[in-house]
Amino acid sequence: MKLKYCLLILITQIFSLYSMEKPEALSSEESIKVQPISETPITKIPKYVYENCNQATRYNWNEEFLEKLKKQVKNFSKEKVSAKYPNKNDFIRHAEGFDWVYGLNYLEENYLKPNIDFVSALSIDEVKKVNGFLSRLVSDIPGQFRKHSIIWRKRNFTNAETIFFEFIEHNTPEDLFIGNNDFNLRVDDNKNISILAIKRVLEYYKANPRCIHGLTNQALGINVDEIKTWAQESLGLHNNVKKNIKPNFINLTTWINKRIHMFPAFDVIEEQVLNALDKIKDPSMHPVRKAAFIWYEIVRIHISHEANKRSGKALASIILLQNGYLPPLIDKEDEKLYLSTLLTSLHEDNFEIFLNFVIKMIEKTQEKYKSGLLKI
C-alpha cells in the first residue's frame, strides 16, 4: 500500500513538472484566481510593454528616449527605415519596433487616457486599424484581412512530405476525389489514398525536380520509404504494433491534423472576428478571459499577413489595463513556451490551454512588480 502511495505521489510530481512546460486546460471561470493590482483602470501603458515587441525584438527603453520615439515614429515611413537599415533583417527588426511603439501609443491615447470601455468600442474596423498600426512598415497591406488560406506547420515536414503537400495544395479537393490530375491520384470517401499512388508522384518529382518550382533541393532529397511511416501513423500502427498488418493507404485527414494547423479560410475571417468580438462583450465574462480570448482568436483566425500575435497581445494588454491588471511580460525565458503553447492550443483546438498560460504570465509579472523587480 505504501509503495502504491509513493508511486502516486511521484507520478503527481512528474505531472506537475510536465505541466509547467505544457500548461493544462482550465475548466471554469472560478479557476481564474489572479487578482488585479489596481481597483481602477491603469491609464498608462507600462514601460516594460514597449520592451517586448514581438518577443524577438527588444530594447532597453528609458523614459526620455521612449517619449522622443513616440513622437518620431509617427513620421517614419518604409523609405526612411529602409535608408537607415538597408539590411533586410535589420529593417524588419527595427520596423517592428517602430510599429509596436506607434501602435501602443495610439491605443494608450485613445483607450486609456479617456477611460473608454475598449471592449464595447471594439469593431472590425478598429481591429483592422490596430493591426495596420502594428504592421504598416513590414506589410504591404497593413490592416487588411488576408486574401488567401495559410498554414502553420506543427513540425518540419520531411522532403517527401513537403513535395506531397505542395502537390495537394496545387490540386483542389475535387481533383483528388475524382482523380482529375496528371497522376490519376484519388482519395476515397474516408480521405484514404493509396501509398502506391503517392510513390508514383514522389518518384516522378525525384526524377523531374524542376517540375516543382522552388523545391528542387527537397525533390532531390526524397526518400519514398518515408511513406511507410505515414501509413503506419495513419492506421495507428507506429511503435511496431500489429506487425502482421501491412498498410496500403494513408489517411490524409489524420496526417494533416497531426502535422499542420490550417487557419480559417479567408472568406470566413470577418464572420469569425465578429463572433469573437461579440463573445468578449458578455459582462459575465472574466476580464482576464476576455483578454486571453481576443489574443488567441486574432492569432487563430490569423486576420492579416503580418502582426497577428502583436495585434492580439496589444488588444489584450489594453483590456487588462482597463481592468487593473498588468499585461504579461513574456521575457526570453518564456518565449519558446509562449509559441509552443499557442501552437498546442491551436492544434488541439483548446483555448483553455492558452488561457492558463496567460494567467500564469500575469501572475508572474505582477509578482515581479510587487517585489520591486519590475518597474512600470
Score class of each variant (00 low, 15 high):
residue 124 I to F: 02
residue 98 F to K: 01
residue 140 D to K: 05
residue 132 G to N: 01
residue 121 A to F: 02
residue 126 E to I: 01
residue 136 R to G: 00
residue 124 I to D: 07
residue 132 G to F: 13
residue 121 A to T: 05
residue 160 A to E: 07
residue 109 E to P: 13
residue 120 S to C: 05
residue 137 L to I: 06
residue 147 K to P: 00
residue 150 I to F: 04
residue 128 K to F: 01
residue 140 D to R: 11
residue 106 Y to F: 11
residue 136 R to Y: 05
residue 152 W to T: 10
residue 116 I to Q: 14
residue 151 I to T: 07
residue 123 S to Q: 02
residue 97 G to Q: 13
residue 116 I to G: 10
residue 138 V to F: 06
residue 129 K to H: 15
residue 107 L to Q: 11
residue 116 I to F: 12
residue 146 R to L: 07
residue 146 R to S: 00
residue 146 R to E: 00
residue 128 K to G: 00
residue 159 N to H: 12
residue 115 N to T: 06
residue 108 E to W: 10
residue 151 I to K: 04
residue 139 S to P: 03
residue 137 L to C: 13
residue 99 D to K: 03
residue 114 P to R: 14
residue 158 T to Y: 02
residue 103 G to F: 06
residue 137 L to S: 10
residue 111 Y to D: 07
residue 95 A to T: 08
residue 100 W to F: 13
residue 153 R to L: 09
residue 119 V to C: 00
residue 144 Q to E: 15
residue 135 S to D: 12
residue 110 N to V: 09
residue 144 Q to M: 10
residue 157 F to W: 01
residue 146 R to N: 01
residue 140 D to G: 15
residue 106 Y to I: 12
residue 154 K to A: 04
residue 125 D to H: 04
residue 131 N to C: 05
residue 105 N to R: 12
residue 97 G to L: 12
residue 143 G to F: 02
residue 136 R to T: 08
residue 142 P to I: 14
residue 111 Y to P: 15
residue 150 I to K: 15
residue 140 D to P: 03
residue 121 A to L: 08
residue 119 V to L: 04
residue 110 N to T: 06
residue 125 D to L: 04
residue 158 T to V: 01
residue 151 I to W: 03
residue 138 V to K: 11
residue 128 K to W: 03
residue 149 S to L: 13
residue 95 A to W: 08
residue 153 R to P: 04
residue 109 E to G: 07
residue 124 I to Y: 04
residue 141 I to D: 14
residue 158 T to P: 00
residue 105 N to G: 13
residue 142 P to V: 13
residue 161 E to T: 01
residue 161 E to W: 01
residue 130 V to W: 02
residue 95 A to E: 11
residue 113 K to M: 14
residue 107 L to V: 11
residue 108 E to T: 13
residue 102 Y to W: 08
residue 102 Y to K: 09
residue 141 I to V: 14
residue 96 E to M: 14
residue 158 T to A: 08
residue 103 G to H: 05
residue 138 V to Y: 12
residue 123 S to L: 03
residue 111 Y to G: 09
residue 97 G to V: 07
residue 111 Y to S: 08
residue 137 L to V: 08
residue 110 N to D: 07
residue 105 N to F: 12
residue 155 R to T: 06
residue 158 T to G: 03
residue 103 G to I: 00
residue 114 P to M: 07
residue 152 W to F: 09
residue 144 Q to V: 08
residue 126 E to R: 08
residue 97 G to A: 02
residue 126 E to H: 02
residue 109 E to D: 13
residue 129 K to E: 15
residue 101 V to F: 10
residue 143 G to L: 14
residue 122 L to W: 03
residue 143 G to E: 06
residue 142 P to A: 12
residue 115 N to V: 04
residue 112 L to Q: 15
